[in-house]
Design a protein around this nucleic acid. Sequence first.
DNA 1: TTTTGAGTTGTTCGA
DNA 2: GTCGAACAACTCAAA
Length: 474
Amino acid sequence: MRPSLVWFRQDLRLADNPALQAAVDRGEPIIPIYIWSPEEEEGWAPGGASQWWLHGSLKALAADLETLGSRLVLRSGRALPALQKLARQTGAGAVFWNRRYEPAAVERDRQVEQALAADGLEAKSFKGSVLWEPWEIATQAGTPYKVFTPFYNACLRAGLGGEPLMRPSALPAPESWPDSEPLSELDLEPQRDWTDGIRKEWTPGEDSARETLRRFLRGGLGKYSRDRDVPSVLGTAQVSPHLCFGEISPRQAWVATGESGGEAWKRQLVWREFGRHLLFHFPRTADEPLRPEFVRFPWKDDPAALQLWQKGQTGYPIVDAGMRQLWETGWMHNRVRMIVASFLVKDLMIPWQEGARWFWDTLVDADLANNTLGWQWTAGCGADAAPYFRVLNPMSQGQKFDPKGKYVRRWVPELESLSAKDIHEPWNATDAVLKRASVELGKDYPYPIVDHAEARTAALDAYGQLRGDTRTRR
DNA sequence: TTTTGAGTTGTTCGA
DNA sequence: GTCGAACAACTCAAA
């Protein structure tokens, strides 16, 4: 008997898992493995919130495997030596995994595949984390897409390759199990426990993922295109962290909405695909702007302002509400992500990379491809970038998407007693109103750290300058 | 090769 | 208060 190793990574589920299915089909005993290798992520090792989620997700996966008479074997360190050691220890004949598309993972996986094959193992990877591999979608010229809508259309034309796979009903166990490191020794849980707010909000694991998706489809899908822009309503699926860790597959998410309908939802799923497409074909963009002229953009180095943004103390209520929701729950509503990102990049002119780093460390759904696409889009330096003159106004965005101030009240409780009219711009409220609401600006809640109108003009100047430079250079 | 139509998510200004 | 235009070309993708 030569067991199959199934190497779990960002596919922490049993249903619709092609690598696992291949092992089942091979008919030999199966040894599920997870290897914690943060040192192989080239500066993008999972952040604190992601690690917390990973801990819970691994625990859930291990428990789930046990119900099938199997186990999850944990190891840490570099993946290749860990896999080689496991292969020797178990006499394995095959190693299967589902592909990842981040540049560091692509390169590492290539080396792993070669080395394992050279060792005489059957080393195979599968499409399990995307609907379309980055190289499956191309323009007629054979180049990668850089604009969303034609990419989306090309995806629809390509169609889905088949239905989701069933969850295996049993996994044959090996005669003896290799050692596993205890989960606690991976040190994924923080030393000082700050996870109270996150724990209240989220339950990692495949069961929870399925339940979240089911609840959303039952209640939300019909209203999705309307409610997804209202931060105080749970109009979004909140399925992103589950998708991020592969507790459900994009194919399951896609198929669940049925043949027709759910267009807005499917578009969002294709955005996720577009992010992978771009990061795969432009592998440096996690750290560098896709449009090279942006290297010369006059970004500001302002650690004090950055910190106020991070802590939700900018004096702009909708921005602060979002940043506090992020800090407390590891998540932020998508509309608010755009608002806080625009504020950091355009009002404060702080590099988008700083925002991307903060999101990376604090989001439970931190995903390198999505994060990169979103931040470069906001900054105007990426694919399909927002026009440079599109500077989100935190007051009007607040009025428009949180008209009653419900969202702000939830996350910025010191402004609780202000009316819907004043809550998005407390500095314009009269002294009497502020007094009645027990708000003393500068003490209970900060004055705005920049004047939006001035900041907007300055940002437009800087972007205009860049454009001028580009023109003269040509 | 050249041409053509189009491009996630806005804001401000002035009539 | 409401509405349309301006904002700025540029690049992409397909015909």
